[in-house]
Design a protein around this nucleic acid. Structure first.
Lengths: 277, 277
DNA sequence: GCGGCGCTGTAACGAATATTACGTTTTGCT
DNA sequence: AGCAAAACGTAATATTCGTTACAGCGCCGC
């Protein structure tokens, strides 16, 4: 039954069935969980870039009678979470349980945090999109994240056909738009400071009906507006640079799952490739 | 001086000077921090057993102009707290945590394991090599790892001059050998199945006296023979593919440390770059 | 014991919020 | 390509909320 489950679960259950606007609401809530949900409907809606009624339809869809009831649920979760022991389980399994470096700890924590907000359902849907051999899959990234797109493409290419990494100038990408249609998938990596060229490109692809899978940071690239699925990775670490580790690992897990799903087919494909080398 | 200090601090400062009713409000808030403060004035007042105006007087006494401003402060604190790696209670019994996926767990364990075998001394030396502005730094990788080399190069290029990523065919790399000397550094990524082309290239570079930093897996690429420093990352995960997450994070941390060491210089450099965009 | 001061609650006001109704646009299906 | 259904935003409405004015009560000093 719907009652009794956590808000995050309710979202995960139904985010796949949501229309675009409500999905954006869900994504912004997950990315800023749960604080944005404690603010007013107006605040929530403006941050999500949708109208107030859409927020209300969203909370109604995940099973609440009204907005205050939704907020109460968030507050209850928060209270329960803050009461349980704050002690982090720093299991000193490694030699001489030295706390490792704070930088590493922060990175690992980011990864954990990122995945705690990523439901299996959501991952499954993305895997489903990318496991469709007949659809074309395009990958592109920003200045620092394009290598991750390449990494993903390198693996995906082996598991299935029709994988294309968009490299070089923006103008090169545009020329590929002509090949993209409703069935196809565009994977974009974009973290702040978000690249205008990517946003423009995403918009055009979206206009052609291309399904967009976005890997971004917790503040959500404007591309989230056009995206079918959003992976919001935590990127803050005590360093001069942001950490893309969470996104990298998410990408890695995704290709792993896609390969597993295509197993029978891709095993044959991989064997065939081996003989070609 | 209304701004700057946290809500909890403000309370501690002035709870001694409060009249009875307001003190009850303060105690109730501290006991249920901060959730009760996120609810309505009516909720707060009834739980504290005082009237609504008393709550408002309390809020005013600790330095807020009105109730919404007080709530905003609490929400900001909460957001900051949830972002930093303090309180993620993935305690068992929580219905949504459910131990994350084994694949993710394995990946994280690999990272931890990798770093437990990497001494600070070793990292320091590598950072020292890469922080030498006058030496040239070349980066190259294998089929699946070259994206990590690119990722590293993208960051390194910003922190210091003379960074070159070797892309394309092996023959292209060879032509760059002429530019490499004893002072220079070559960063190679190579995991199994180790690429012969990389081994050949490493050997030639080594012959010219180039310092080699190798990122490889736990079984060590044959290049380890020529390498000045070796980062041996754990790569085994229950998936069709090996995981390069440990190498990725190691690379990320390395560039972070290099940037820190070059701080004064690279800060100027980065600023200069900004103006050029 | 008496009067003044400060603290507190009741109740009414005004502001801000959540909600609903409706027209427009988009989406999906054939 | 054209129709029907769904989704979305605008704007008006009703409700809730925060705020303020005011009167009662207790507390302390004289």
């Amino acid at each position: 039954m719907t009652a009794g489950t956590s808000v995050a679960e309710r979202i995960a259950d139904r985010i796949g069935l949501m229309p675009a606007g409500e999905r954006r609401a869900a994504q912004t809530l997950v990315a800023n969980y749960p604080v944005i949900g404690l603010k007013t409907v107006a605040d929530f809606s403006s941050q999500a870039g949708v109208s107030a009624p859409t927020i209300l339809r969203f909370v109604a869809r995940i099973g609440f009678q009204n907005y205050p009831e939704f907020q109460a649920a968030l507050q209850d979760e928060l209270a329960a979470q803050l009461q349980s022991p704050l002690s982090r389980t720093v299991d000193a399994g490694s030699p001489r349980g030295l706390g490792l470096s704070p930088l590493l700890e922060a990175t690992l924590e980011n990864v954990r945090e990122t995945f705690s907000h990523l439901s299996d359902r959501q991952l499954d849907d993305m895997v489903g999109l990318l496991a469709n051999r007949r659809a074309k899959a395009f990958l592109v990234g920003g200045r620092f994240t394009d290598p991750i797109a390449r990494y993903m493409a390198a693996h995906l290419t082996i598991a299935r056909p029709n994988v294309f990494h968009l490299s070089g100038q923006e103008s090169n990408w545009r020329d590929r738009l002509i090949d993209m249609g409703r069935r196809d998938v565009l994977v974009i990596f974009d973290i702040r400071r978000y690249q205008e060229s990517l946003v423009r490109f995403a918009e055009k692809a979206h206009a052609r009906g291309v399904q967009i899978v976005l890997f971004t940071d917790q503040w959500l690239s404007p591309i989230a507006r056009f995206a079918r699925h959003v992976v919001a990775g935590r990127t803050s670490v005590p360093s001069a640079w942001d950490s893309s580790a969470a996104l990298f690992i998410a990408a890695e897990m995704l290709v792993g799952e896609v390969t597993r799903r295509l197993e029978t087919g891709s095993a044959k494909r991989i064997r065939e490739m081996e003989t070609l080398r």
